[in-house]
Amino acid sequence: MSDIIMQNILSPAVLFFVLGLIAAVLKSDLAFPKSIGEALSLYLLIAIGLKGGIELAHYSVNDVFIPIIGALFLGTIIPIITLFITRFMNMDRKNAIGLAATYGSISIVTYGAAISFLEKQAISYEGFMNAIVVLMESPAIFVSMLLLKGLESRHTLSPASSRSLGFVSPSTNFIDPAVMKESLVGKSVLLLVGSLAIGLLLGERAIPTVKPLFIDLYGSVLLLFLLHMGLTAGQRLPEVKKHGVKLLIFGMGAPLLFGSLGVLVGHLVGLSLGGTTLMGVLAGSASYIAAPAALKSSVPEANPSIYLGLSLGITFPFNLIAGIPIYYQLAQWMQ
């Protein structure tokens, strides 16, 4: 186990992330223009979607049905477990829901780093796992909003306070359409689903066109993005520290718990060693794109320094350095 973790730490992906982290801690003037960081993020979303769609074209519905059920199960159960843990920690409802949505959703960059890890280990995985990424992006956001609605229904609220929640319409019992729109057509989900559909539609015919940019250069672009994420994570660390030790423990304990659950589910639905590892990575990761974007509009009272600072400042580097090889080792044991 220690050898695998050390190999992962000494990989270019992790070292570039650490370089960005050190630069932020030392308050270097190293910085990425906002537009460049946005462009790198969009590139990764398109690349993963395209590759997933092209690979998915090789599989029948019978091949992917059970793994999809497993992914949807994880997207539903993880927010519920997160809410239970955070409420046990005496966290207020809205910040607890913020963490439930964040940890129930997934990190596309952690997934990309896990793919690089598996390729370095010469471990294959099911091509449809890229499609699983898309399926695990949004369910947790819906589930978290429903959980908040259920929690609020247990308390006597005035009409004014109900409106202030930001996601329950005073005139209906349904989730605000703005939340549904953000979850379904936000840029991350839209690009993933759209790119996946294009790759699925074209199949192998797309490879000559997309290979030079979205396949051959993927690893190099990922290094640049991880350098950018290292800078961002380093800037978020002080925000996490000021919220206490319990949150720091949660930021490292939650990915281990959920990642182990993901590995178990991956094994039960019949995935290979690589696929089981990736299922664990997805379950153990936390969103800092789709979920925070939805929370900003649906639960504005939730503190971004908690759900975003924790996912990006603690869980993301933990997974990048230690989580991925741990999930891989767990998958090996189950195999």
Rank of each mutant, 00 (worst) to 15 (best):
residue 165 L to C: 04
residue 166 G to Q: 07
residue 167 F to P: 01
residue 167 F to C: 05
residue 167 F to W: 15
residue 168 V to R: 12
residue 169 S to Q: 13
residue 169 S to W: 07
residue 172 T to C: 12
residue 173 N to L: 13
residue 173 N to Q: 14
residue 173 N to R: 10
residue 174 F to N: 13
residue 174 F to V: 15
residue 174 F to T: 13
residue 174 F to L: 10
residue 175 I to C: 01
residue 175 I to D: 00
residue 175 I to W: 05
residue 177 P to F: 15
residue 177 P to V: 15
residue 177 P to R: 05
residue 178 A to Y: 03
residue 178 A to R: 02
residue 178 A to M: 11
residue 178 A to E: 11
residue 179 V to D: 02
residue 179 V to Y: 03
residue 179 V to H: 02
residue 180 M to D: 12
residue 180 M to H: 11
residue 180 M to T: 15
residue 182 E to A: 13
residue 183 S to H: 11
residue 183 S to F: 07
residue 183 S to W: 04
residue 184 L to C: 06
residue 186 G to H: 10
residue 186 G to Q: 09
residue 187 K to N: 13
residue 187 K to S: 15
residue 188 S to K: 07
residue 188 S to T: 09
residue 189 V to G: 07
residue 190 L to R: 04
residue 190 L to A: 08
residue 194 G to R: 01
residue 195 S to C: 06
residue 195 S to H: 04
residue 195 S to E: 07
residue 196 L to R: 11
residue 197 A to M: 07
residue 198 I to M: 06
residue 198 I to D: 03
residue 198 I to G: 02
residue 199 G to T: 03
residue 199 G to R: 00
residue 200 L to T: 10
residue 200 L to M: 07
residue 201 L to G: 11
residue 202 L to N: 02
residue 202 L to T: 05
residue 203 G to A: 01
residue 204 E to T: 14
residue 204 E to H: 09
residue 204 E to S: 15
residue 204 E to M: 08
residue 204 E to Y: 12
residue 206 A to E: 00
residue 206 A to H: 05
residue 207 I to P: 14
residue 207 I to R: 11
residue 208 P to E: 00
residue 209 T to G: 13
residue 209 T to Y: 10
residue 210 V to F: 02
residue 210 V to Y: 00
residue 210 V to E: 05
residue 210 V to C: 03
residue 210 V to W: 00
residue 211 K to D: 08
residue 211 K to R: 15
residue 212 P to V: 08
residue 212 P to G: 06
residue 212 P to M: 09
residue 214 F to S: 02
residue 214 F to N: 03
residue 214 F to T: 02
residue 215 I to C: 00
residue 216 D to P: 01
residue 217 L to I: 12
residue 217 L to A: 07
residue 217 L to C: 09
residue 217 L to W: 13
residue 217 L to H: 12
residue 218 Y to H: 12
residue 218 Y to C: 08
residue 219 G to K: 12
residue 222 L to C: 07
residue 222 L to V: 03
residue 222 L to N: 03
residue 222 L to H: 06
residue 223 L to P: 11
residue 223 L to S: 07
residue 224 L to R: 08
residue 224 L to N: 03
residue 224 L to G: 01
residue 225 F to I: 11
residue 225 F to R: 03
residue 226 L to I: 01
residue 226 L to Q: 00
residue 227 L to Y: 09
residue 228 H to W: 09
residue 229 M to G: 04
residue 230 G to R: 05
residue 230 G to H: 03
residue 230 G to F: 01
residue 231 L to H: 06
residue 233 A to C: 10
residue 233 A to D: 01
residue 233 A to V: 06
residue 234 G to R: 12
residue 235 Q to I: 14
residue 235 Q to E: 13
residue 236 R to V: 10
residue 236 R to I: 15
residue 237 L to A: 08
residue 237 L to F: 10
residue 238 P to F: 14
residue 239 E to H: 10
residue 239 E to L: 15
residue 239 E to K: 15
residue 239 E to R: 13
residue 240 V to F: 02
residue 240 V to T: 07
residue 240 V to Y: 03
residue 241 K to Y: 12
residue 242 K to R: 11
